[in-house]
Design a protein around this nucleic acid. Sequence first.
DNA 1: CACTAAGTGAACCGATCGGTCTGGATAAGA
DNA 2: TCTTATCCAGACCGATCGGTTCACTTAGTG
Lengths: 211, 211
Amino acid sequence: MTELHKGPRGQRRGRGARERILDAAQNLFREQGINNTGMNQLCEVANVSKHTAYQHFTSKDELITEHLRQQDPGTMPEVFDRADLTPRERLLAAFEKPATSTPGGTRLCPFIEAAVEITDPEHPARILAREYKKSVAARLTETAREAGAVDPELLGEQLALLLDGASVRTRTLGTDTDPTAAGIAATLIEHAIPETAPPRPRDSAGEMPRA
Amino acid sequence: MTELHKGPRGQRRGRGARERILDAAQNLFREQGINNTGMNQLCEVANVSKHTAYQHFTSKDELITEHLRQQDPGTMPEVFDRADLTPRERLLAAFEKPATSTPGGTRLCPFIEAAVEITDPEHPARILAREYKKSVAARLTETAREAGAVDPELLGEQLALLLDGASVRTRTLGTDTDPTAAGIAATLIEHAIPETAPPRPRDSAGEMPRA
DNA sequence: CACTAAGTGAACCGATCGGTCTGGATAAGA
DNA sequence: TCTTATCCAGACCGATCGGTTCACTTAGTG
Protein backbone atom coordinates (compact mmCIF):
# COMPACT_ATOMS: atom_id res chain seq x y z
CA MET A 1 0.00 0.00 0.00
CA THR A 2 2.27 2.65 1.27
CA GLU A 3 5.43 1.20 -0.08
CA LEU A 4 6.69 3.12 -3.06
CA HIS A 5 9.66 2.94 -5.24
CA LYS A 6 9.53 6.56 -6.26
CA GLY A 7 8.21 9.14 -3.93
CA PRO A 8 10.84 10.96 -1.91
CA ARG A 9 8.37 11.22 0.88
CA GLY A 10 4.75 10.34 1.08
CA GLN A 11 4.16 11.66 -2.41
CA ARG A 12 2.99 9.63 -5.31
CA ARG A 13 3.78 9.51 -8.89
CA GLY A 14 0.48 10.99 -9.82
CA ARG A 15 -0.05 14.67 -9.76
CA GLY A 16 0.81 16.52 -6.63
CA ALA A 17 -2.48 16.47 -4.82
CA ARG A 18 -0.85 16.78 -1.45
CA GLU A 19 0.85 20.02 -2.32
CA ARG A 20 -2.30 21.51 -3.74
CA ILE A 21 -4.12 20.64 -0.55
CA LEU A 22 -1.47 22.24 1.64
CA ASP A 23 -1.38 25.29 -0.60
CA ALA A 24 -5.12 25.70 -0.35
CA ALA A 25 -4.94 25.23 3.39
CA GLN A 26 -2.32 27.91 3.71
CA ASN A 27 -4.35 30.43 1.75
CA LEU A 28 -7.72 29.64 3.27
CA PHE A 29 -6.51 29.36 6.84
CA ARG A 30 -4.78 32.68 6.47
CA GLU A 31 -7.70 34.44 4.86
CA GLN A 32 -10.60 33.10 6.84
CA GLY A 33 -9.20 31.22 9.77
CA ILE A 34 -8.93 27.53 10.51
CA ASN A 35 -12.29 26.89 12.10
CA ASN A 36 -14.10 28.85 9.44
CA THR A 37 -12.67 26.73 6.65
CA GLY A 38 -14.55 23.56 5.84
CA MET A 39 -13.09 20.53 4.19
CA ASN A 40 -15.55 20.80 1.31
CA GLN A 41 -14.44 24.28 0.45
CA LEU A 42 -10.81 23.36 0.93
CA CYS A 43 -11.04 20.42 -1.46
CA GLU A 44 -12.86 22.55 -3.97
CA VAL A 45 -10.16 25.21 -3.92
CA ALA A 46 -7.40 22.61 -4.06
CA ASN A 47 -9.06 20.89 -7.02
CA VAL A 48 -8.99 17.65 -5.16
CA SER A 49 -11.69 15.17 -4.29
CA LYS A 50 -12.48 14.63 -0.65
CA HIS A 51 -11.49 11.02 -1.05
CA THR A 52 -8.00 12.03 -2.12
CA ALA A 53 -7.72 14.56 0.65
CA TYR A 54 -8.56 11.97 3.27
CA GLN A 55 -6.03 9.63 1.76
CA HIS A 56 -3.28 12.12 2.38
CA PHE A 57 -4.51 13.34 5.74
CA THR A 58 -6.53 11.12 7.98
CA SER A 59 -8.38 14.05 9.52
CA LYS A 60 -8.69 17.80 9.40
CA ASP A 61 -6.67 17.99 12.60
CA GLU A 62 -3.82 16.18 10.95
CA LEU A 63 -4.03 18.52 7.98
CA ILE A 64 -3.84 21.50 10.29
CA THR A 65 -0.81 20.04 12.00
CA GLU A 66 0.90 19.24 8.73
CA HIS A 67 0.09 22.72 7.50
CA LEU A 68 1.79 24.22 10.52
CA ARG A 69 4.76 21.93 10.21
CA GLN A 70 5.26 23.20 6.69
CA GLN A 71 5.26 26.81 7.89
CA ASP A 72 8.40 26.12 9.84
CA PRO A 73 11.23 25.36 7.44
CA GLY A 74 13.83 26.10 10.06
CA THR A 75 12.96 29.03 12.25
CA MET A 76 13.32 32.16 10.19
CA PRO A 77 16.40 31.25 8.17
CA GLU A 78 16.08 34.43 6.10
CA VAL A 79 17.06 36.26 9.24
CA PHE A 80 19.37 34.07 11.21
CA ASP A 81 21.38 32.69 8.32
CA ARG A 82 22.41 36.01 6.91
CA ALA A 83 26.15 35.92 7.18
CA ASP A 84 26.46 39.43 5.78
CA LEU A 85 25.12 40.90 8.98
CA THR A 86 26.65 41.19 12.39
CA PRO A 87 24.77 39.38 15.15
CA ARG A 88 23.51 42.69 16.40
CA GLU A 89 22.21 43.59 12.97
CA ARG A 90 20.61 40.20 12.67
CA LEU A 91 18.64 40.79 15.84
CA LEU A 92 17.27 43.98 14.37
CA ALA A 93 16.63 42.38 10.98
CA ALA A 94 14.10 40.08 12.62
CA PHE A 95 11.78 43.04 12.83
CA GLU A 96 12.07 44.12 9.25
CA LYS A 97 9.09 43.31 7.15
CA PRO A 98 9.82 40.53 4.69
CA ALA A 99 7.67 42.23 2.03
CA THR A 100 5.32 39.29 2.41
CA SER A 101 2.69 41.76 3.42
CA THR A 102 -0.72 40.66 2.33
CA PRO A 103 -3.12 43.23 0.98
CA GLY A 104 -4.80 44.52 4.07
CA GLY A 105 -1.80 44.36 6.30
CA THR A 106 0.73 41.83 7.42
CA ARG A 107 -0.80 38.54 8.25
CA LEU A 108 -1.07 37.03 11.67
CA CYS A 109 1.58 34.47 12.54
CA PRO A 110 0.02 31.09 11.68
CA PHE A 111 1.26 29.57 14.91
CA ILE A 112 -0.50 32.20 16.96
CA GLU A 113 -3.57 31.71 14.84
CA ALA A 114 -3.55 28.01 15.64
CA ALA A 115 -2.83 28.58 19.31
CA VAL A 116 -5.89 30.80 19.58
CA GLU A 117 -8.28 28.87 17.39
CA ILE A 118 -7.52 25.47 18.84
CA THR A 119 -8.74 24.96 22.38
CA ASP A 120 -7.00 21.80 23.45
CA PRO A 121 -3.47 22.61 24.68
CA GLU A 122 -2.40 19.06 23.89
CA HIS A 123 -3.45 19.22 20.28
CA PRO A 124 -0.44 18.38 18.09
CA ALA A 125 -0.75 21.73 16.37
CA ARG A 126 -0.66 23.52 19.71
CA ILE A 127 2.41 21.58 20.74
CA LEU A 128 4.03 22.43 17.44
CA ALA A 129 3.23 26.10 17.90
CA ARG A 130 4.69 26.04 21.38
CA GLU A 131 7.90 24.45 20.18
CA TYR A 132 8.21 26.84 17.30
CA LYS A 133 7.88 29.83 19.58
CA LYS A 134 10.46 28.38 21.90
CA SER A 135 12.71 27.74 18.95
CA VAL A 136 12.53 31.34 17.77
CA ALA A 137 13.32 32.58 21.25
CA ALA A 138 16.25 30.19 21.41
CA ARG A 139 17.60 31.46 18.12
CA LEU A 140 17.30 35.01 19.31
CA THR A 141 19.01 34.12 22.53
CA GLU A 142 21.80 32.45 20.65
CA THR A 143 22.28 35.46 18.42
CA ALA A 144 22.10 37.76 21.40
CA ARG A 145 24.90 35.78 22.95
CA GLU A 146 26.99 36.14 19.82
CA ALA A 147 26.32 39.85 19.89
CA GLY A 148 27.70 39.99 23.38
CA ALA A 149 24.54 40.69 25.31
CA VAL A 150 24.85 40.79 29.05
CA ASP A 151 21.86 38.48 29.58
CA PRO A 152 21.23 36.70 26.28
CA GLU A 153 18.42 34.55 27.66
CA LEU A 154 16.53 37.60 28.79
CA LEU A 155 17.09 39.56 25.60
CA GLY A 156 16.04 36.60 23.47
CA GLU A 157 12.80 36.14 25.34
CA GLN A 158 12.14 39.86 25.25
CA LEU A 159 12.62 40.12 21.51
CA ALA A 160 10.42 37.09 20.97
CA LEU A 161 7.68 38.74 22.94
CA LEU A 162 8.02 41.82 20.77
CA LEU A 163 7.59 39.80 17.60
CA ASP A 164 4.42 38.20 18.90
CA GLY A 165 3.09 41.48 20.18
CA ALA A 166 3.59 43.14 16.82
CA SER A 167 1.87 40.27 15.05
CA VAL A 168 -1.34 40.31 17.08
CA ARG A 169 -1.46 44.05 17.42
CA THR A 170 -1.24 44.38 13.69
CA ARG A 171 -4.19 42.04 13.51
CA THR A 172 -6.33 43.78 16.09
CA LEU A 173 -5.60 47.31 14.94
CA GLY A 174 -5.46 46.66 11.24
CA THR A 175 -2.31 48.74 10.94
CA ASP A 176 1.28 47.67 10.75
CA THR A 177 2.91 47.81 14.17
CA ASP A 178 6.23 46.26 13.26
CA PRO A 179 8.03 49.61 13.44
CA THR A 180 6.95 50.04 17.03
CA ALA A 181 8.36 46.65 17.90
CA ALA A 182 11.54 47.44 16.00
CA GLY A 183 11.93 50.61 17.99
CA ILE A 184 11.61 48.77 21.26
CA ALA A 185 14.03 46.15 20.02
CA ALA A 186 16.59 48.77 19.18
CA THR A 187 16.31 50.25 22.65
CA LEU A 188 16.58 46.88 24.35
CA ILE A 189 19.54 45.79 22.27
CA GLU A 190 21.35 49.03 22.83
CA HIS A 191 20.65 48.70 26.49
CA ALA A 192 21.71 45.06 26.76
CA ILE A 193 24.87 45.04 24.70
CA PRO A 194 27.94 46.86 26.01
CA GLU A 195 29.07 49.63 23.71
CA THR A 196 32.33 48.05 22.69
CA ALA A 197 31.45 44.71 21.31
CA PRO A 198 30.39 44.86 17.68
CA PRO A 199 32.56 42.40 15.77
CA ARG A 200 32.31 39.14 17.49
CA PRO A 201 32.10 35.84 15.67
CA ARG A 202 30.37 32.93 17.26
CA ASP A 203 33.65 31.99 18.92
CA SER A 204 32.94 32.84 22.51
CA ALA A 205 36.46 33.60 23.56
CA GLY A 206 35.65 35.39 26.72
CA GLU A 207 32.73 36.44 28.80
CA MET A 208 31.81 40.05 28.96
CA PRO A 209 33.07 42.00 31.89
CA ARG A 210 30.33 42.37 34.45
CA ALA A 211 29.51 46.05 34.26
CA MET B 1 -24.52 47.07 38.00
CA THR B 2 -27.92 47.45 36.47
CA GLU B 3 -31.18 47.39 38.35
CA LEU B 4 -33.05 44.29 37.49
CA HIS B 5 -36.63 44.99 38.40
CA LYS B 6 -37.01 47.94 36.14
CA GLY B 7 -34.95 47.72 33.03
CA PRO B 8 -33.45 51.06 32.19
CA ARG B 9 -34.13 50.32 28.59
CA GLY B 10 -37.17 48.59 27.27
CA GLN B 11 -37.39 45.01 28.33
CA ARG B 12 -37.01 42.70 31.27
CA ARG B 13 -39.02 42.56 34.35
CA GLY B 14 -38.71 38.96 35.37
CA ARG B 15 -35.51 37.23 36.39
CA GLY B 16 -32.16 38.00 34.99
CA ALA B 17 -31.87 35.73 32.02
CA ARG B 18 -29.74 38.21 30.18
CA GLU B 19 -27.06 38.23 32.83
CA ARG B 20 -26.96 34.47 33.02
CA ILE B 21 -26.48 34.33 29.27
CA LEU B 22 -23.63 36.81 29.34
CA ASP B 23 -22.05 35.01 32.27
CA ALA B 24 -22.18 31.71 30.44
CA ALA B 25 -20.78 33.37 27.33
CA GLN B 26 -17.88 34.79 29.29
CA ASN B 27 -16.98 31.43 30.78
CA LEU B 28 -17.47 29.34 27.67
CA PHE B 29 -15.81 31.74 25.27
CA ARG B 30 -12.83 31.94 27.56
CA GLU B 31 -12.57 28.21 28.10
CA GLN B 32 -13.25 26.88 24.65
CA GLY B 33 -13.26 29.81 22.29
CA ILE B 34 -16.04 31.61 20.49
CA ASN B 35 -16.38 29.49 17.40
CA ASN B 36 -16.25 26.29 19.39
CA THR B 37 -19.17 27.28 21.56
CA GLY B 38 -22.60 26.52 20.17
CA MET B 39 -25.78 28.28 21.14
CA ASN B 40 -27.31 25.06 22.38
CA GLN B 41 -24.54 24.46 24.85
CA LEU B 42 -24.51 28.10 25.85
CA CYS B 43 -28.22 28.10 26.64
CA GLU B 44 -27.87 24.87 28.54
CA VAL B 45 -25.10 26.28 30.73
CA ALA B 46 -26.98 29.53 31.24
CA ASN B 47 -30.15 27.69 32.22
CA VAL B 48 -32.04 29.55 29.59
CA SER B 49 -34.21 28.42 26.73
CA LYS B 50 -33.10 29.20 23.23
CA HIS B 51 -36.22 31.21 22.77
CA THR B 52 -35.30 33.47 25.64
CA ALA B 53 -31.75 33.80 24.43
CA TYR B 54 -32.89 34.94 21.03
CA GLN B 55 -35.24 37.42 22.62
CA HIS B 56 -32.31 39.14 24.31
CA PHE B 57 -29.86 38.82 21.46
CA THR B 58 -31.04 38.68 17.89
CA SER B 59 -28.07 36.58 16.82
CA LYS B 60 -24.94 34.94 18.08
CA ASP B 61 -22.93 37.73 16.54
CA GLU B 62 -24.81 40.25 18.61
CA LEU B 63 -24.23 38.18 21.72
CA ILE B 64 -20.52 38.10 20.99
CA THR B 65 -20.47 41.84 20.55
CA GLU B 66 -22.45 42.44 23.71
CA HIS B 67 -20.16 40.06 25.56
CA LEU B 68 -17.15 42.05 24.46
CA ARG B 69 -18.80 45.32 25.31
CA GLN B 70 -19.29 44.04 28.84
CA GLN B 71 -15.60 43.19 29.13
CA ASP B 72 -14.79 46.85 28.81
CA PRO B 73 -16.14 48.74 31.80
CA GLY B 74 -13.81 51.62 31.19
CA THR B 75 -10.35 50.62 30.02
CA MET B 76 -8.58 49.06 32.97
CA PRO B 77 -9.83 51.29 35.77
CA GLU B 78 -8.12 49.15 38.39
CA VAL B 79 -4.89 50.44 36.98
CA PHE B 80 -5.48 53.94 35.74
CA ASP B 81 -7.73 55.13 38.53
CA ARG B 82 -5.34 54.32 41.33
CA ALA B 83 -4.70 57.69 42.89
CA ASP B 84 -2.29 56.17 45.37
CA LEU B 85 0.30 55.62 42.67
CA THR B 86 2.41 58.05 40.75
CA PRO B 87 1.88 58.08 37.00
CA ARG B 88 5.14 56.24 36.58
CA GLU B 89 4.05 53.58 39.03
CA ARG B 90 0.72 53.31 37.29
CA LEU B 91 2.43 52.53 34.03
CA LEU B 92 4.25 49.69 35.69
CA ALA B 93 1.18 48.50 37.54
CA ALA B 94 -0.46 47.73 34.20
CA PHE B 95 1.84 44.73 33.97
CA GLU B 96 1.08 43.32 37.37
CA LYS B 97 -1.09 40.26 37.31
CA PRO B 98 -4.58 40.97 38.66
CA ALA B 99 -4.72 37.57 40.36
CA THR B 100 -7.41 36.71 37.85
CA SER B 101 -5.19 33.91 36.69
CA THR B 102 -7.20 30.97 35.53
CA PRO B 103 -5.98 27.49 36.39
CA GLY B 104 -3.62 26.73 33.57
CA GLY B 105 -2.28 30.21 33.16
CA THR B 106 -3.55 33.71 32.63
CA ARG B 107 -6.30 33.88 30.09
CA LEU B 108 -6.01 35.41 26.68
CA CYS B 109 -7.36 38.92 26.34
CA PRO B 110 -10.95 38.49 25.09
CA PHE B 111 -10.52 41.24 22.55
CA ILE B 112 -7.56 39.51 20.98
CA GLU B 113 -9.50 36.26 21.06
CA ALA B 114 -12.32 37.91 19.12
CA ALA B 115 -9.96 39.61 16.70
CA VAL B 116 -8.41 36.28 15.81
CA GLU B 117 -11.52 34.13 15.75
CA ILE B 118 -13.63 36.52 13.73
CA THR B 119 -12.58 36.89 10.14
CA ASP B 120 -14.53 39.91 8.99
CA PRO B 121 -12.65 43.08 9.97
CA GLU B 122 -15.92 45.03 9.85
CA HIS B 123 -17.68 42.78 12.32
CA PRO B 124 -18.97 44.90 15.24
CA ALA B 125 -16.94 42.81 17.64
CA ARG B 126 -13.79 43.45 15.62
CA ILE B 127 -14.48 47.15 15.58
CA LEU B 128 -15.05 47.09 19.31
CA ALA B 129 -11.78 45.24 19.84
CA ARG B 130 -9.94 47.77 17.73
CA GLU B 131 -11.37 50.68 19.64
CA TYR B 132 -10.61 49.06 22.96
CA LYS B 133 -7.00 48.51 22.03
CA LYS B 134 -6.72 52.09 20.87
CA SER B 135 -8.31 53.21 24.09
CA VAL B 136 -5.80 51.34 26.22
CA ALA B 137 -2.93 52.81 24.24
CA ALA B 138 -4.45 56.28 24.66
CA ARG B 139 -4.71 55.79 28.42
CA LEU B 140 -1.11 54.68 28.57
CA THR B 141 -0.06 57.64 26.48
CA GLU B 142 -1.96 59.98 28.73
CA THR B 143 -0.34 58.50 31.82
CA ALA B 144 3.05 58.60 30.15
CA ARG B 145 2.53 62.29 29.55
CA GLU B 146 1.68 62.82 33.20
CA ALA B 147 4.80 60.95 34.12
CA GLY B 148 6.81 63.34 32.02
CA ALA B 149 7.84 61.04 29.22
CA VAL B 150 9.75 62.59 26.36
CA ASP B 151 7.51 61.04 23.70
CA PRO B 152 4.30 59.96 25.44
CA GLU B 153 2.65 58.78 22.22
CA LEU B 154 5.51 56.47 21.49
CA LEU B 155 5.78 55.12 25.01
CA GLY B 156 2.03 54.50 25.18
CA GLU B 157 2.00 52.55 21.97
CA GLN B 158 5.06 50.62 23.03
CA LEU B 159 3.60 49.60 26.36
CA ALA B 160 0.35 48.60 24.69
CA LEU B 161 2.28 46.34 22.36
CA LEU B 162 3.96 44.75 25.37
CA LEU B 163 0.63 43.98 27.00
CA ASP B 164 -0.65 42.27 23.87
CA GLY B 165 2.58 40.41 23.37
CA ALA B 166 2.48 39.06 26.90
CA SER B 167 -1.11 37.96 26.49
CA VAL B 168 -0.63 35.91 23.34
CA ARG B 169 2.76 34.58 24.33
CA THR B 170 1.29 33.34 27.57
CA ARG B 171 -1.31 31.55 25.48
CA THR B 172 1.07 30.00 23.00
CA LEU B 173 3.71 28.96 25.51
CA GLY B 174 1.39 28.01 28.33
CA THR B 175 3.57 29.86 30.81
CA ASP B 176 3.14 33.29 32.29
CA THR B 177 5.16 35.85 30.37
CA ASP B 178 3.92 38.95 32.12
CA PRO B 179 7.18 39.36 34.03
CA THR B 180 9.10 39.56 30.78
CA ALA B 181 6.81 42.31 29.55
CA ALA B 182 7.11 44.08 32.88
CA GLY B 183 10.86 43.98 32.58
CA ILE B 184 10.79 45.54 29.14
CA ALA B 185 8.31 48.13 30.35
CA ALA B 186 10.61 49.09 33.20
CA THR B 187 13.48 49.56 30.80
CA LEU B 188 11.43 51.61 28.36
CA ILE B 189 9.98 53.81 31.05
CA GLU B 190 13.34 54.42 32.61
CA HIS B 191 14.67 55.25 29.20
CA ALA B 192 11.82 57.55 28.21
CA ILE B 193 11.37 59.59 31.36
CA PRO B 194 14.06 62.06 32.27
CA GLU B 195 15.76 61.32 35.55
CA THR B 196 14.77 64.70 36.95
CA ALA B 197 12.36 64.69 39.83
CA PRO B 198 9.39 62.43 39.48
CA PRO B 199 6.36 64.20 41.01
CA ARG B 200 7.21 63.53 44.61
CA PRO B 201 6.63 59.83 45.09
CA ARG B 202 6.07 58.93 48.71
CA ASP B 203 7.62 55.57 48.32
CA SER B 204 10.87 54.52 46.77
CA ALA B 205 10.36 54.07 43.07
CA GLY B 206 13.64 52.26 42.71
CA GLU B 207 13.10 48.62 41.88
CA MET B 208 15.43 45.75 41.64
CA PRO B 209 17.39 45.75 38.41
CA ARG B 210 15.85 42.64 36.95
CA ALA B 211 17.52 39.46 38.13
C1' DC C 1 -0.68 -4.53 -22.97
C1' DA C 2 -2.01 -5.60 -18.50
C1' DC C 3 -1.58 -4.32 -13.93
C1' DT C 4 -1.88 -1.32 -10.23
C1' DA C 5 -2.60 2.49 -7.64
C1' DA C 6 -3.83 7.52 -7.36
C1' DG C 7 -7.25 10.20 -8.87
C1' DT C 8 -12.34 11.97 -9.51
C1' DG C 9 -17.16 13.30 -8.36
C1' DA C 10 -21.07 12.72 -6.06
C1' DA C 11 -24.06 10.48 -2.99
C1' DC C 12 -24.35 9.70 1.61
C1' DC C 13 -23.80 9.54 6.96
C1' DG C 14 -24.81 11.26 11.70
C1' DA C 15 -23.97 15.24 14.26
C1' DT C 16 -24.15 19.87 15.01
C1' DC C 17 -24.64 24.53 13.53
C1' DG C 18 -27.49 29.09 14.10
C1' DG C 19 -32.09 30.16 14.38
C1' DT C 20 -37.49 29.67 14.64
C1' DC C 21 -41.72 28.36 16.68
C1' DT C 22 -45.39 26.39 19.70
C1' DG C 23 -47.54 25.63 24.08
C1' DG C 24 -47.72 26.19 28.61
C1' DA C 25 -45.92 27.77 33.22
C1' DT C 26 -44.84 31.75 36.30
C1' DA C 27 -44.85 36.11 38.34
C1' DA C 28 -45.59 40.95 38.76
C1' DG C 29 -48.69 45.40 37.78
C1' DA C 30 -53.26 47.21 37.27
C1' DT D 1 -58.62 39.04 39.44
C1' DC D 2 -57.18 39.83 34.93
C1' DT D 3 -53.48 41.27 32.06
C1' DT D 4 -49.05 41.28 30.40
C1' DA D 5 -44.56 40.09 29.87
C1' DT D 6 -40.79 36.71 30.90
C1' DC D 7 -39.49 32.52 30.81
C1' DC D 8 -38.90 27.24 29.91
C1' DA D 9 -38.82 22.80 27.40
C1' DG D 10 -38.18 21.00 23.27
C1' DA D 11 -39.58 19.97 18.52
C1' DC D 12 -38.22 21.62 14.35
C1' DC D 13 -35.77 23.93 10.14
C1' DG D 14 -32.26 24.06 6.39
C1' DA D 15 -27.44 24.30 6.10
C1' DT D 16 -23.09 22.76 6.98
C1' DC D 17 -19.78 20.19 9.57
C1' DG D 18 -16.07 16.27 9.33
C1' DG D 19 -15.80 12.03 7.31
C1' DT D 20 -17.04 7.59 4.42
C1' DT D 21 -18.16 4.90 0.44
C1' DC D 22 -18.63 3.65 -4.34
C1' DA D 23 -18.24 3.32 -9.28
C1' DC D 24 -15.27 4.96 -12.33
C1' DT D 25 -11.17 7.26 -14.82
C1' DT D 26 -6.41 8.22 -15.41
C1' DA D 27 -1.54 7.55 -15.51
C1' DG D 28 2.99 5.25 -14.75
C1' DT D 29 5.58 0.84 -14.95
C1' DG D 30 7.05 -4.03 -15.85
